[in-house]
Write a protein that binds this DNA or RNA. Structure first.
Lengths: 164, 164
DNA sequence: GGAAATCTACTCGGATACCGCGTGTCCGAGTTATGGTGG
DNA sequence: CCACCATAACTCGGACACGCGGTATCCGAGTAGATTTCC
């Protein structure tokens, strides 16, 4: 199991279809987004409730309802999507082993537990660099690199599928 | 569960006690290292078999045997320890969802699957930055910052505990 | 014909099952030093 | 005194149980638009 989960992957792929004018439709339902990509429908619906709680998408209920981006795609970073879906789970959680040394007899001195653990500090720095990369890309960035590869009629084909 | 596991934490803490001359002893057994820090003995033994396979430590069998570093601590990076213990597990594993789009009817065109997925590319860059940090620290670096905090007689106390 | 009731399709939220993997434990096999025994 | 054997402590490797969390599914409740019914 990877640290960045399949749920994030599903969520990101679905969000890309919400970038842009959607060819007449202003929102797409979770079912359509899921079936369009061959991923579990109910699971995607669950992901979108998290995205809504995080304020990244807006939901419209009832028939013809669905989701649309709450903000312009340029202002939504990949990091926000990751944290919305899987929460702020740390890359490494320190067990504070340094204070368990047997010579302390269960009473670690203050010098042993002061500040952050040296190992933990390295991991925190690694995590910060990782998140920095994720925060440097927006939904619009990735959507652009996707539509650059696709032929011009692809978005029309997708819109036709969504309406049909 | 974090991406960098508890096993790595145990392994690193144990390895730090193998940095330096060990005050007369030239190796320490897995049992001593584990009990010194109050962590599961058998589990640490398992970790050290992985460290040995990776060529980071040398084992001497029989009574009074144990482990010692296979190379100078300055040349062993944190990244090597992480990969030795938990293997090269990716930060993110791409499911190639881009090729599943329903409008392809199960036959994705070549433009859709050429090169690396745009999402995957971002994740790979994030992973590379993370690993870059882990590779920039050696066992000696962290061991130094630990012994800087400890008083002078701490290493003697540890040596006494290991021998007694 | 218009208003109200019904129906349908959707979102929302919780409950639950499944399963892979990290964690931890146990056991047997092989190895080496130590201590004891017999020639 | 020396060679041989038994014992103890260790490493090695595999097998296995447990629990957590990600993945996936199902179901009931609530809502909004479409359809039908009734006056």
């Amino acid at each position: 199991m990877a640290h960045i989960t399949t749920g994030v992957e599903y969520g990101l792929h679905c969000l890309f279809y919400l970038v842009g004018p959607l060819e007449g439709k202003q929102s797409a339902s979770a079912r359509d987004l899921a079936e369009l990509q061959g991923v579990p429908v109910e699971y995607v619906a669950k992901l979108f409730t998290k995205l809504k709680k995080a304020g990244l998408v807006l939901a419209s209920e009832g028939v013809g309802g669905g989701f649309r981006l709450a903000r312009p795609a340029e202002s939504i970073t990949v990091l926000e999507v990751v944290e919305a879906i899987e929460g702020k789970k740390p890359l490494f959680d320190c067990q504070e082993i340094r204070g368990r040394c047997a010579v302390f007899n269960g009473r670690p001195p203050t010098w042993a537990t002061r500040g952050t653990c040296s190992i933990h500090a390295v991991m925190l720095e690694a995590e910060a660099q990782m998140r920095k990369v994720l925060a440097s890309y927006s939904l619009a960035d990735i959507a652009n690199s996707l539509t650059c590869k696709a032929p011009a009629n692809y978005s029309r084909e997708v819109a036709k599928w969504l309406n049909g």
